[in-house]
């Protein structure tokens, strides 16, 4: 393991109560500082499970997770202070306005009022939501909710950002806005874990790819280095079908 590794996962295994198959099985990977780490795979591959385990919100059956050199089992709270997470489900109060949501989460991160105002104004501006600051989230479109869900993970300026399908269900404009912003964060040195089942999108964004299927890691590396890529697949999607077969996963 190199010095630049931020996350080390080894032998991760999770079987949900009552499930026959493990949702994640014997999963090991390393995330390097400054990467946009693509955690890819079809629905049910185990991406969200892996992410919840990284956040320390899941009881895992086996394996170890180290983030910033700390074990998630022992130092979960400390680690959570340093990471920003945008869960797959929109995690906002629908009956509060965009500003009220962010202000509340900002307070819970322990930020003071002035800092919150300044950061929230900036972020809303960056994500084209400035005019919607006083609108209740319940009235937001899917794309707007996604953007706000992401903003809420950025308030405390985390060094590590974990995003679970941050572009699912959004329009083209929202998607572009989100992806551009992530690239600018990467340029500032933020490490990003990016989960998606949309492979063409990941292809342009991520600097590292880990592909899961049915809870197992089936391929990883830089895109150009992947062996299957050289054996004729022109893009990630083809590679993926080659690796996993054409059976639907739901």
């Amino acid at each position: 393991m190199t010095d630049s590794s931020l996350i080390q996962v080894s032998g991760l295994r999770k079987i949900y109560r009552g499930a026959e198959m493990p949702a994640v099985d014997n999963l090991s990977f390393v995330v390097h500082e400054g990467d946009i780490f693509g955690l890819l795979g079809p629905n049910g591959a185990g991406k969200s499970t892996t992410i919840m385990a990284l956040c320390g919100l899941l009881k895992i059956n086996a394996g170890s997770i180290q983030i910033f050199g700390l074990s998630i089992n022992q130092k979960g709270a400390e680690i959570r202070k340093l990471i920003g997470v945008a869960p797959q489900e929109i995690a906002l109060f629908p009956m509060l306005t965009a500003y009220e949501n962010l202000a509340y989460f900002g307070r819970m991160y322990g930020l003071d009022r002035a800092t919150i105002r300044q950061r929230v104004d900036h972020l809303l501006e960056d994500f084209g939501l400035k005019e919607k600051a006083k609108v209740r989230v319940a009235h937001f479109s899917g794309g707007m909710k996604r953007r706000l869900n992401l903003i809420a993970a950025l308030l405390h300026r985390p060094r590590l950002l974990i995003l679970d399908e941050p572009t699912s269900g959004v329009d083209v404009q929202s998607r572009k806005m989100i992806l551009d912003y992530l690239l600018s964060l990467q340029a500032e040195g933020v490490t990003i874990i990016y989960s998606s089942h949309l492979l063409d999108e990941a292809e342009n964004l991520c600097s590292w790819f880990s592909i899961l299927d049915e809870g197992r890691l089936i391929a990883e590396g830089k895109l150009k280095d992947m062996p299957a890529m050289n054996s004729g697949s022109r893009n990630l999607e083809q590679l993926f079908l080659e690796l996993t077969g054409k059976r639907t996963r739901d």
Partner: peptide, 9 residues
């Protein structure tokens, strides 16, 4: 709705 999940995070 998921807001509790964010608070846990």
């Amino acid at each position: 709705e998921g807001s509790m999940l964010r608070l846990r995070l």
